[in-house]
Write a protein that binds this DNA or RNA. Structure first.
Lengths: 150, 150
DNA sequence: CAAATTAGTTCGATCCTCTGACTACCGTCA
DNA sequence: TGACGGTAGTCAGAGGATCGAACTAATTTG
């Protein structure tokens, strides 16, 4: 590998570490029929539900892929589709029974990992990291919008 | 999406943006037979060559997957395998003809994107971001080692 | 209302990734 | 020297993820 890593590579390492930790925790908690791709979609579900196109934009996949993954989440009762009251074409994907429980495990794991990172970096540097990433999001997130005011 | 994004999600956005920009630049430069997965492997080739297991560790895939991707890079003359003089079992994967040219395009694109990010964040914050990520690598990079000391 | 747009689905193909099992080579230890 | 455990990489097979093109249905625009 290069002597000095580019920032893209540097971003990848902790991103992937977080993803792996969350999936491992879910599997350990008994949600062992989940795949990484499914979790990636589930992690992006808004509290009130998300449209498929939103999910696809945020996960950077086509809507076909997002639909394929939501099908599986629905089949395993992690998510459900409900009509979007504001648009007859659209449906909202939101957490279902098992999904709520899984989301709790995931959230706890994320908090745990973030705490570990903060312990290693120090609180100030961790805050700076988050702030820089949120600012970076302004120019790198093609699918902005939604509830996040970033 | 949640009101406050977790750091994992925040890392994903610019990581993926960088990856996409690099692949787009490569395709535009005529290297249009490259896929994202292939570029991911090629981006991790050390100047003097890397062993397959190294590549697999760094890209977080199994050695079978890494081998599969290197096969393709070799077939399209982006990379080549040479014997490892220090170990008869091993071979070193390194850039070949087209790979050198592609690597130049990739490096230029990375530099360009990093410059854009630095312009948006300011030089100080960009340095702080890189420093935080490098420090984070200490606890999130399972496959450390190699030449990178940063 | 007709046309253009948008949300989502279906179909088909390809690519990616993993598990398991295998060969070849290295290092150690007696 | 030779047996043994570990490491580097490959082969075979299967399943999962992703995409492009084409399609239906509903909304928006003029």
């Amino acid at each position: 590998m290069p002597d000095e890593w580019n920032v893209g590579l540097l971003l990848f390492v902790p991103y992937r570490a977080m993803e792996t930790r969350v999936l491992e925790a879910l599997v350990a908690a008994g949600f062992d029929d989940l795949t990484m791709a499914q979790v990636r979609v589930m992690a992006r579900l808004a509290p009130g539900g998300s449209r498929l196109t939103e999910l696809a934009d945020q996960a950077r996949v086509t809507k076909q892929t997002a639909g394929f993954l939501v099908d599986q989440l629905e089949r395993h009762e992690y998510a459900q589709r409900i009509p979007d009251p504001t648009d007859g074409r659209a449906r909202l994907v939101r957490l279902a029974g098992r999904g709520e429980a899984a989301a709790e495990v995931a959230a706890a794991t994320v908090a745990q990992v973030e705490a570990e990172w903060a312990a290693h970096l120090g609180a100030a540097r961790m805050r700076a990291l988050r702030a820089a990433l949120e600012q970076l999001r302004e120019i790198t997130d093609t699918g902005l919008g939604g509830s996040g005011r970033g």
